[in-house]
Write a protein that binds this DNA or RNA. Structure first.
Lengths: 144, 144
DNA sequence: ACAAAACCTATTAGAATAGTAGGAATACAA
DNA sequence: TTGTATTCCTACTATTCTAATAGGTTTTGT
């Protein structure tokens, strides 16, 4: 039931883009420094997010990345699914899964269906903007 | 977010023990045949369940396994946790996890806490006896 | 022209997954 | 008491996944 570093780092990356946006593109180098993640690894991760059109890029000096939409438009689930592919708990359930020919006679699939639904509800219920809000609350708490 | 075959097979094994119990011990060989799982692999899985005292064993001819408690006494979560160790979505949350020194300043942990709680609620909410009931409903539906 | 950034592709070390394999110990039954 | 069926124990293995590292190429602002 683990979420990989790819998924977790992608969320940190997107959150960083949301929080530190000031009109300018944000460099991977800076995100890597702030989030304590390898620059090269982040490059790979942002490439996937770029392919999914979650971020806009500009190349060359003064280049970097921006969110392509407002933070309310992303859910944690969207980001994780983009990075991890399917999030389903077993192959026999969920999109793109290997259909089991015994599926409608197997009661254990009900477990995975219920589980996946619960996971989905949580992950689709948290928006990137919620993370930004939580972060701001934390800052209020610690700095002030 | 995958549940491994070990966890899934363990549930099938426990369910098989619950359903086919008639006073006698049940052989791994029979479970393997019914559930279409490798006998040798099931041996390993049942060994873990035995160590956790979820099943009683008797050796030699006429040997086999029985549940050590009634099916109501097991939750799916108990079984999965026994097979998979921690079910938590990230190392920074949950028991036995590597505590992150930045934990109380990191908002993403909130995601994993919420997620783990939801997973827990589902998995602790399903008892082995529920699976037995579902199975019996299925049988009614198909055979009768 | 130069520097800084994104972009692209290959490689790798280690761990986890999903088993396979072979035999030792035990116990029933003839 | 001998055979057979079972659990029990330990080692091995092939494959995939994870989490990176590495080394460049292309683009662009100054």
């Amino acid at each position: 039931m683990r979420i990989s570093t790819k998924g977790r780092y992608a969320i940190k990356l997107m959150l960083d883009l949301a929080i530190y946006y000031d009109g300018e593109s944000i460099k991977i180098k800076d995100i890597a420094k702030r989030q304590q993640i390898s620059e090269k690894y982040l490059e790979q991760i942002v490439a996937t997010l770029h392919k999914a059109s979650f971020v806009l890029s500009s190349r060359g000096a003064k280049g970097g990345y921006k969110l392509s939409r407002p933070p309310e438009a992303y859910t944690v689930g969207m980001i994780l699914r983009t990075m991890e592919g399917s999030l389903s708990s077993a192959d026999c359930v969920g999109a793109g899964g290997v259909e089991c020919e015994n599926k409608d006679r197997c009661v254990t699939v009900k477990i995975w269906e219920k589980l996946d639904e619960a996971v989905d509800t949580v992950l689709e219920g948290i928006k990137l903007s919620d993370l930004v809000d939580w972060q701001n609350e934390l800052v209020d708490q610690y700095i002030i």
